[in-house]
Simulated assay, not measured.
Amino acid sequence: MRRALKWLGRAALALLLAALVVGFYKREEITRLMAVNSLFSEGKIVANFSHMDRAFLTRAISRGDGPVSPLPTGTATILPPNTDQWINERFVTSLLVLHRGQIVHESYRLGTLAEDRRIGWSIAKSFLSALFGIIKAEGAIGSLDDQVTQYVPALTGSAYDGVTIRNILQMTSGVAFDEDYLDYDSDINKMGRVLALGGSMDGFAAALDTRIAQPGAQWKYVSIDTHVLGMVIRGATGRDIPDLLSEKIIAPLGLEVEPYYLTDGRGVAFALGGVNMTTRDYARFGQMIAQGGYWHGKQIVPADWIASSTIASAPTAPDKIRYGYQWWIPKEARDGVFMARGIYGQYIYVDQPRDVVIVTTGADRQFRNPGVHDVNIAMFRAIAAAL
């Protein structure tokens, strides 16, 4: 009995030592996984969204060495009477309104600051759309109807085999992907753990092997489609996304603060939702888009790409929000009104006819509740109409 207890004790000690060794060498991955598990918790979400670089692998997007571009201050506007109530109810952390290219309102809430580089989540998709428009105009892409495997052979045999670039731009790939953020076992949360643990986003995409519809037949918002768009851009150019985005968009914009991407363990940018920048710099991007891709004497993004990517072209359901090439078009919106949109209350709302750009960042844990998005759009429309 005594001999057995001695061996059990030795075995337990060995297991403990093994666990300590694994914990030591995997401490960064464990820290990131713990950060993911508490990323959206009520007491941490605001600070987390301003400091994503504390928990995730990142890659700077160089702003270049050029001067900061002007973002002048205009006459302060009087916002609609219910704006403060909306800000409080929707946990808005910043609100910036541009009218005719001038700041007419700028405010920061819940302890955030103007210099905070806030995570934009799926706002990043619209950045990638703009980048794609540039490289297509430069001749790196033949046609929107080219199959993605032409540029990314690693996707041959996956659910993306037979999918075109147009399909992924419009979210009509037909690839099965569960986007339920509240389900621990959903695909979107599995993807988040791949990111946190330093895995490969490319490998995750290539491992998807199931479709719910034929390519082009059905619209379904699938975030991983945008990662595949990034793979196409990389395959077509032989360059990575942060360097391309820096050269083609970020440096020409003249941002105030250098932005950054979240990355996976291979250093690949989390292009579908990992851009972090200040509210003013999001506004610069939005104003450039509102001006048809033109910014301070230079055509950054081709005007025809802005026009074609921001109109409703995807086969969304009738009387529902509409979709273009990685841009959203609100229900009943007039021509020239569209937006970039991210979870938890991130928006770049563009109203070209009124020459208005509205940027919000937020920490709204009820963002998926019925009617919340409609309330936000109604608020943006009221602000734009009041100018």
Rank of each mutant, 00 (worst) to 15 (best):
Pro153Thr: 11
Ala154Glu: 14
Thr156Met: 15
Gly157Lys: 14
Ser158Ile: 11
Ser158Phe: 13
Ala159Glu: 03
Tyr160Ser: 12
Val163His: 04
Val163Glu: 04
Val163Ser: 06
Thr164Pro: 07
Ile165Ser: 05
Arg166Asn: 12
Arg166Tyr: 11
Arg166Gly: 06
Arg166Met: 07
Ile168Met: 10
Gln170Ile: 08
Thr172Arg: 11
Ser173Asp: 10
Phe177Gly: 10
Asp178Pro: 12
Glu179Phe: 09
Glu179Tyr: 08
Asp180His: 11
Asp183Leu: 15
Tyr184Arg: 15
Asp187Tyr: 11
Ile188Val: 15
Lys190Cys: 12
Met191Trp: 13
Met191Ala: 10
Val194His: 05
Val194Met: 09
Ala196Asn: 04
Gly198Glu: 07
Gly198Tyr: 07
Gly199Thr: 07
Met201Ile: 13
Met201Arg: 07
Asp202Met: 14
Gly203Val: 08
Phe204Arg: 02
Phe204Asn: 02
Ala205Phe: 02
Ala205Glu: 03
Ala207Thr: 13
Ala207Gly: 12
Leu208His: 11
Leu208Met: 15
Leu208Pro: 07
Asp209Trp: 12
Thr210Cys: 12
Arg211Pro: 10
Arg211Leu: 09
Ala213Arg: 08
Pro215Arg: 04
Gly216Lys: 07
Gly216Ser: 08
Ala217Val: 09
Gln218Asn: 15
Gln218Trp: 13
Gln218Leu: 14
Trp219Arg: 14
Lys220Tyr: 13
Tyr221Leu: 13
Tyr221His: 15
Val222Ala: 15
Val222Lys: 10
Val222Met: 10
Ser223Thr: 15
Ile224Phe: 03
Asp225Arg: 04
Asp225Val: 06
Asp225Trp: 04
Val228Arg: 04
Leu229Lys: 05
Leu229Trp: 04
Met231Phe: 02
Val232Trp: 07
Ile233Tyr: 00
Arg234Gly: 04
Gly235Leu: 05
Thr237Trp: 00
Thr237Ile: 02
Gly238Thr: 08
Asp240Thr: 03
Ile241Asp: 00
Pro242Leu: 09
Leu244Tyr: 00
Leu244Pro: 00
Leu245Trp: 05
Glu247Val: 10
Lys248Glu: 11
Ile250Lys: 02
Ala251Pro: 09
Pro252Cys: 08
Pro252Ala: 09
Pro252Ile: 08
Leu253Ile: 08
Gly254Val: 10
Glu256Tyr: 08
Glu258Gln: 08
Glu258Val: 03
Tyr260Gly: 02
Tyr260Val: 01
Leu262Asp: 01
Asp264Thr: 05
Gly265Ile: 02
Gly267Ile: 02
Val268Gly: 02
Ala269His: 01
Ala269Phe: 03
Ala271Glu: 01
Ala271Pro: 00
Gly273Lys: 03
Val275Glu: 01
